[in-house]
Design a protein around this nucleic acid. Structure first.
Length: 253
DNA sequence: TCAAATGTTTGATC
DNA sequence: GGATCAAACATTTG
């Protein structure tokens, strides 16, 4: 977002073309026709969705797990969309094709009706939401209908910082622990943004630069390595189908 | 060589 | 309605 918005806002889309049925569910030609000649009036974020407001309607992009929007990069084997702009070319690359590109006159319900943003929810509201849920906290943090914006890495890191076990029941968290988790989410997301994200294998921003937050991970990807706080080996389990990393000593159930 | 892992969402099923 | 799990896909790693 930080590198994308300044570069894209105010630009005109001259022409667009697509090559992935997975990423683009619409008819390619129909979507291209919707975009041609339109100017980007603004770029906003709705949880993990990127929304470019056009003269008419919105171009909605989700990067999935491996998607990337890149300015003036050479097209490669995983280029799924090409946007010719009046100031260069914007590519959408996505090896696994879990990402999505679509156009809509208004935000579709599944984008508009996500939970509150993890970066903006108040401590009191967060506590209220947690109280209503009979679910383990880690998978719940990943549920975008509950809270928008948290991904797998940052959920593990926030739970570690807050000292909360990933299997803890949301509704049973004490007010103090919920407050610590709220603080940790905002801290972790803020630090990750400041460090331009976590480049595990191939994540890059719109200018093609890798992030550096991966060097600051305390638990994610550190299975078997000593906890930076207590020295106990970091454990990896699967919760809700996602790899989950935590310190069994610092994060008690 | 092959099984398992990877940053996400959805749709089915209970 | 809510919780849980498999599936969509390509590539890397052990």
């Amino acid at each position: 977002m930080r590198s994308l918005a300044p570069r894209l806002t105010g630009r005109r889309i001259l022409h667009a073309r697509f090559s992935s049925r997975h990423v683009v569910r619409d008819n390619f030609k129909r979507l291209a026709a919707k975009l041609a000649g339109q100017t980007v009036r603004g770029v906003t974020r709705h949880g993990k969705f990127i929304v470019a407001q056009l003269d008419k309607g919105n171009l909605i992009v989700h990067l999935g797990m491996t998607g990337a929007l890149l300015f003036d990069a050479p097209a490669g084997p995983h280029t799924r969309a090409v946007f010719d702009l009046d100031n260069g070319v914007l590519l959408y690359d996505d090896p696994r094709q879990f990402g999505r590109i679509e156009w809509a006159p208004e935000l579709p319900a599944r984008v508009a009706r996500l939970g509150p943003d993890a970066l903006h929810i108040s401590e009191a509201d967060f506590l209220t939401l947690l109280r209503r849920r009979h679910a383990r906290i880690k998978p719940l943090l990943l549920n975008q209908s509950f809270l928008r914006g948290m991904g797998n890495i940052y959920s593990d890191e926030a739970l570690f910082q807050a000292g909360v076990h990933p299997r803890a029941m949301a509704s049973r968290l004490s007010k103090q622990r919920a407050a610590r988790l709220h603080r940790a989410m905002i801290d972790i997301l803020g630090a990750a943004i400041a460090n331009k994200g976590s480049s595990i294998s191939d994540y890059v921003d719109a200018e093609g630069r890798r992030g550096t937050f991966q060097h600051m991970h305390q638990v994610y990807g550190r299975e078997g390595q000593p906890c930076t706080r207590c020295g106990a080996p970091i454990r990896r389990v699967v919760l809700g189908g996602r790899g989950t990393h935590y310190c069994p000593k610092c994060q008690r159930l």
